[in-house]
Write a protein that binds this DNA or RNA. Structure first.
Lengths: 338, 338
DNA sequence: GTTTGTCCTGAAAGCGCTTACATGGATTAT
DNA sequence: ATAATCCATGTAAGCGCTTTCAGGACAAAC
């Protein structure tokens, strides 16, 4: 193996193959027909010199980055890894690289700090939940940067959005609690405030109650934050204040963990005394005790679908403005079924 | 907000501020002192034009990509998301972007396909487990591309490696099974063949047995593959063949899920009849039933440490050739402790 | 034989930056 | 006062590609 001091450039290849750099570029990109014999010589030279085109030079010259940006509020949990899996596979399938950035919590500290991802280094952006401020969405949209939102809607601009059937999923599982298990005082734990999924799930919860002639009792609605600890504290608080309830719809599966922990610590039998259900169907749901009844969200598919729409946008094709993926109730034991 | 047809370039800023592009570049990068008053004018122009430097142009001109590449065999599970979290945060902290690529399973299909990550678009590479073939490692090393390996050692080249105390962690937990719970016939489930972690854990398992005067019985060593399904099948097979055992060290936590499933399905009481322990301490370990005794691996820290070493290499500083992070036994109930 | 196409290839102009190197005014030493 | 030194800034040469345009070769058509 030769150890060139400086890696080969397109000029080296051209020289070695006895052609111009334009021709090398053409066989590299297949933009124009090249006599097969010449192309062969170029390919040989490429192999011989171990030539790899410099991405930056290509990007600069072609004004296309071939890169997708992914913006997330945070990286954690099983939810995230499913989504990334879908995104990464789809992006690669479409020939794009993936640049990832988490916006983190203290975003408001630097309100106008420039995002490290944007029009200058990506062909398009995927934004999950509240990772992008409205103002920034508007700006990016106005300069024509392709944008796709996941689990978040934005009115005013025509931005493709991928989300899931939160409301009906939630309504189904709450209805199940009422119909199959006769529960009447069902706690709902909200997710983070900015989280649209949570708002829709709450709406589904309310609708299911009303459909069955039950009042929505504000005392039964509390903050779970889609987090184990927050949910645990919420249930402990309810217990401490002697609020009566016979079921908990925990907002998501992560929060269900906290709910189960709090209930078990308090000696409340699940599901005999209190039913517990979640949302998402993360991989561990079947392994909780009791195995968690929940709503399956096609998370990986959200990721791949988002990439699909974004790529369409980048190619100047029409994209679907709203993709609503179906959810499905998964009955296990924590609701009371056996 | 103005909607420029073409985004501003450094030349536009220079014109607006009445300076040369070199001066703009200098205030952008802080490479040379610039009269504060001039700098201020430039900053104003930048803001006014909504200027963002094009990454590609910078990369091309400076010959630094400011990007780290991450190579993974796959994206899945809680393990991965902890690691990525550590990596992403550290990379950003050091001012680098992150490009991710999963090599996937069928790598041998295209033995010489060029990796999409390498010397042409990253300043350095992070490789996890078996994501890089030896030949490619050698090539990258020989051309001087900074490289850091995680959970994988490579002899012959001086490449910094980050890994964890697999052997002693495994030895401790197996010793605990023997000493505290009197177990003698302990099953060990191997991980994937190429996985070094697995080999070290097996070594720890063997040493612990020998230290306590127990024979290593090959019949008790089986393949768990660090996967739920594989582990489940392995235990079912052991049960079907009536191999007697009173404990299972499942290789990792993911496999422990399969073990618990198989055991429970067969009506074997855990931990009364059989103790089960894992490795990693993924976030769900406390929520299994029974809560899983395991070994805590500082996964997030592996990621951040790897970035730290890689950045040192990139800066031309000396890096530590081997970073061995400590593990710690976490006693819960699945071993028999209460 | 000249003209008109058709193909393939080469020349060269950027893409938007960074970074020697040059310049010239202000400051200090002689 | 003159020369030496500094500093802040400008000039311009690339970085390694893509892409437009032009040109040469050759075949078919007039």
């Amino acid at each position: 193996m030769n150890i060139p001091n400086r890696p080969a450039t397109i000029a080296d290849v051209a020289r070695q193959a006895g052609v111009s750099i334009a021709t090398v570029s053409r066989v590299l990109n297949g933009t124009t027909r090249v006599i097969p014999e010449t192309a062969e010589r170029v390919q040989d030279a490429i192999r011989a010199l171990n030539y790899v085109p410099r991405t930056a030079a290509r990007v600069l010259a072609s004004r296309r980055t071939n890169t997708l940006g992914l913006l997330l509020p945070e990286i954690s949990g099983a939810f995230f890894s499913s989504m990334l899996r879908g995104i990464e596979a789809a992006a690669r399938g479409a020939g794009f690289d993936l640049l990832i950035h988490t916006t983190g919590e203290p975003r408001h500290a630097l309100p106008h700090a420039r995002l490290p991802l944007g029009e200058h280094n990506t062909d398009g952006l995927l934004a999950f939940t509240a990772s992008l401020e409205n103002e920034e969405i508007t700006r990016l949209y106005s300069i024509g940067l392709p944008l796709v939102l996941m689990h978040q809607t934005f009115t005013g601009c025509e931005i493709p959005t991928i989300t899931i059937e939160n409301k009906s999923g939630a309504a189904h599982i709450v209805a199940h609690l009422i119909e199959a298990h006769g529960r009447r005082r069902i706690v709902f734990l909200r997710g983070p405030e900015s989280h649209e999924d949570s708002a829709w799930r709450e709406r589904g919860y309310c609708e299911a109650l009303e459909t069955h002639g039950l009042q929505v009792d504000p005392a039964l609605i509390s903050l779970g934050g889609f987090q184990r600890e927050t949910a645990q504290a919420a249930i402990q608080d309810l217990l401490a204040r002697d609020v009566a309830f016979d079921a908990v719809f925990s907002g998501d599966d992560e929060a269900a963990l906290g709910v189960l922990t709090a209930l078990q610590a308090a000696g409340v039998a699940v599901p005999q005394e209190v039913s517990v259900v979640g949302f998402d169907d993360i991989p561990f749901a079947p392994f909780l005790s009791p195995p968690l009844t929940t709503v399956r969200a096609p998370i990986e598919q959200v990721g791949s679908e988002a990439v699909k729409q974004l790529v369409r946008l980048i190619r100047g094709e029409r994209a679907d403005l709203l993709t609503l993926l179906p959810t499905e109730m998964v009955i296990r034991n924590s609701c009371g079924c056996t």
